[in-house]
Every structure is written in structure tokens, then in C-alpha cells.
């Protein structure tokens, strides 16, 4: 999970309180990955155990400032230097659903059409969010990523339809 590396990246900018880390994490990722404060403190205490961050003294309100250690910096740099492996990403339910629909000889076309309308709707909403957004480049790039993903899904759905229309197997089933 990238929460700890994300927190390290924020701490590399200077010492931070837990609540600050949470706010900055969400600001950077455009609230696409909401963290609760409990997750932040759990992660911080594990990173403290692993020597990646060091806590300061508690202030009079009971808050603790965390500072990144040398080991923490090294971990962050290792993270930035390592590509994300495909196997680390969650499986895509839509892909499985369509594959199963084809395997089970169900009528795939309505599945594709319903998804196409839903994904286009998502794309419209993302585009509107991007137009309305006054956020910085980090959030904008997150929105762009979601737009590209929705776009790719839409193209893939068109592709599925074209392949299935051309496939003699599906044509036999339809007749």
C-alpha cells in the first residue's frame, strides 16, 4: 500500500502533525483516496517502529510532530524509483464480468451497452469536475488519470463489441 510512502513524501517537505498529513494527502490526491485520521496514526506508529519517521515531543495540546529519518528518505526514493507492478493493482470487475458473460454464453451486448452509458456518464462528471477545479497540478493530474481510465474503458467496450460482432461463434448463438 502506498499510504506510508505517500506520507513519507509529504514529510520530506518538513515535519508535520498527523492531521496536517491527512489534509495534505487528500489535497494532493483530489479526495479520490480519503484517509481517516486513525489510518494516518496507525501508519505513523508502524513507520516509527520501522525507523522511517521520528516523533517529536508532545505539545500542550497533546499533538506530536513527525520528522522523516534518513531511512525514511531512502524508502521514499526507492518507491519513486520503482515502477508499479501490474500484479499490485486491483482486478477489474468489469473485465471479469464481460469474460464471464461471454463464457456463460449470456447476451453480452446489453452488458456492454449499459456499461458504456454508465462510463460515459462518469466521463462527463469527471470532465465537469476538471473544468470547475481550481486545485493545483497534483489534483488536476489525478483527475486526468481518471479521465484517461474512463476513456480507455470506453474504447475497450467498443473493441469488445466489434470483436464479438465479427466472431462467428457469437453470430451462431444469435441466430
Amino acid at each position: 500500500m502506498a499510504i506510508r510512502q505517500g506520507l513519507l513524501a509529504l514529510l520530506s517537505q518538513g515535519p508535520r502533525y498527523g492531521y496536517q498529513l491527512r489534509a495534505e494527502f487528500e489535497a494532493s490526491t483530489g479526495a479520490t483516496w480519503p484517509l481517516n485520521i486513525g489510518q494516518v496514526y496507525t501508519t505513523l506508529s508502524r513507520m516509527e517502529r520501522d525507523g522511517l519517521v521520528a516523533p517529536g515531543e508532545q505539545d500542550d495540546q497533546g499533538r506530536v510532530v513527525y520528522t522523516i529519518t534518513e531511512a525514511g528518505r531512502a524508502e521514499m526514493e526507492r518507491w519513486f524509483g520503482t515502477p508499479v507492478a501490474q500484479s499490485d493493482r486491483p482486478r477489474d470487475e468489469l473485465v471479469i464480468k464481460l469474460a464471464m458473460a461471454v463464457t456463460a454464453a449470456a447476451d453480452v451486448r446489453p452488458v456492454i451497452q449499459a456499461q458504456r452509458v454508465a462510463t460515459m456518464r462518469t466521463l462527463q462528471e469527471l470532465t465537469r469536475a476538471k473544468r470547475a477545479s481550481v486545485a493545483g497540478p497534483a489534483q488536476r493530474l489525478v483527475l486526468d488519470s481518471m479521465i484517461f481510465q474512463a476513456e480507455a474503458e470506453q474504447r475497450w467496450l467498443d473493441h469488445c463489441e466489434a470483436v464479438l460482432t465479427a466472431s462467428p461463434q457469437t453470430q451462431e448463438r444469435q441466430t
Partner: peptide
């Protein structure tokens, strides 16, 4: 699709 995303209706 990314340009259609600007529309009110597709």
C-alpha cells in the same frame, strides 16, 4: 470519448 465527456448529453 474524452471529448464527448464535455457534453451535457451523449
Amino acid at each position: 470519448p474524452r471529448y464527448a465527456g464535455w457534453a451535457d448529453r451523449v
